[in-house]
Design a protein around this nucleic acid. Structure first.
Lengths: 208, 208
DNA sequence: TAGATTGTTAATCGATTAACAATC
DNA sequence: TAGATTGTTAATCGATTAACAATC
């Protein structure tokens, strides 16, 4: 897998879609596909597919096309689905519970190993097989376990403070669902913002 | 508000962030701000701010800058926060409940007026002040109420089918949280996909 | 071999940044 | 008026699309 120059996030975010389509084709028993045909299926250009793939190497065969299941496997490797990364959820409200129980982390190269909250009301309750722990237990937990990613499902009032705590505990990845700005932490951790509000705003605008 | 040529979604999705920063400044009692100073605060370029704003008109004053609260109000108008759009949630699982109770639709130019599910287990239960209705009640509900947006929090197995139903009922906006492809519906409705899986994949990739 | 399709280079398109004249 | 800062045009940068030589 070559990776000469920095690959844009736009390319990365297209990979899961390729992965999904190739999986479906493969499940249907379709063994080979050309970039042209896959492009039509996905509603994009064949050029884009070939350019995207060539960021990582040549996975096809000239005159033939791509082997669906082999290409899917390669994309899986690029996305790191084969190395399991431990995840904890911070915040056991509706959103935290929804993410923990519905995200299928184990199908995506992750494993959810803990969920934490500061409210006495939810501490000790069970969500998707995990017991909600107190935030006080977080430092000890992080020492015992190699936590790669924290998913932040907390109110934006405590966002920055929680973020600092987490970074101090050595967690390198932050998946942020809170509204609020973490751009000044981006040299200390890899931050991926979901920003549902921006998405909803775009929908509202485009309705006019 | 001018709007000569099509405005890119990238511009639209930056507007909520401007809105938030301007609100905070205004709340602090700061009356005026220059594009230069706002840019430093937000970690972007002053050029981008001025270009973005000029898609919609000139809201500043040469030699002075922008009035924080006036500019915030203008951006609110552009985003359509002043015209309330009715929203329904399809799917009353953890995610549907989280979106309904945590999204603060009323602060974003929307009002959540209904939540629907097909499972007997949740029909009749109450979420954030709304009673979960059966999917069978959806057509009648849509006739009585002007529903602008449906939020899809359903398994991807029923996604396409639900999408067709919704479009037939005259709903023009779809906010899709399911994994799965709706690109072929995009001429029949305005579709905004959240695609949490793609976001998580990007985080995983960037951790390496 | 001939046909097909990749991998890769070149051209185009769009978005971001820089520059500056207009003007408050 | 002089200084500051916008609104807008021009330059740069990056991403997408097209073209085609390499090759299976």
């Amino acid at each position: 897998m070559k990776r000469e120059h920095q690959i844009s996030n736009q390319v990365i975010k297209r990979l899961p879609r390729y992965y999904r389509f190739l999986g479906e084709l493969s499940a249907k028993g379709i063994v080979k596909i050309s970039s042209q045909h896959l492009a039509e299926l996905m509603g994009i250009t064949a050029s884009q597919i070939r350019q995207d793939l060539n960021c990582f190497g040549g996975f096809g065969q000239q005159g033939y096309g791509y082997n669906t299941s082999a290409l899917q496997a390669e994309i899986g490797k690029i996305l790191g689905l084969d190395t399991i990364k431990n995840v904890i959820i911070i915040g056991a409200g509706n959103l935290g519970k929804a993410i923990l129980s519905g995200m299928h982390f184990n199908k995506r190269g992750f494993e959810a190993i803990g969920i934490f909250d500061s409210s006495e009301k939810v501490i000790g309750t069970s969500v998707a097989g995990l017991t909600v722990q107190s935030m006080d237990e977080l430092p000890g937990f992080c020492k015992k376990n190699n936590v790669a990613v924290a998913v932040l499902c907390i109110p934006s009032t405590t966002l920055r403070e929680t973020c600092e705590t987490i970074i101090d505990l050595g967690i390198k990845g932050i998946w942020n669902f809170s509204h609020g700005d973490l751009s000044d932490f981006k040299d200390k951790a890899v931050i991926e913002n979901v920003h549902l509000g921006d998405s909803l705003a775009a929908l509202g605008y485009n309705l006019k």
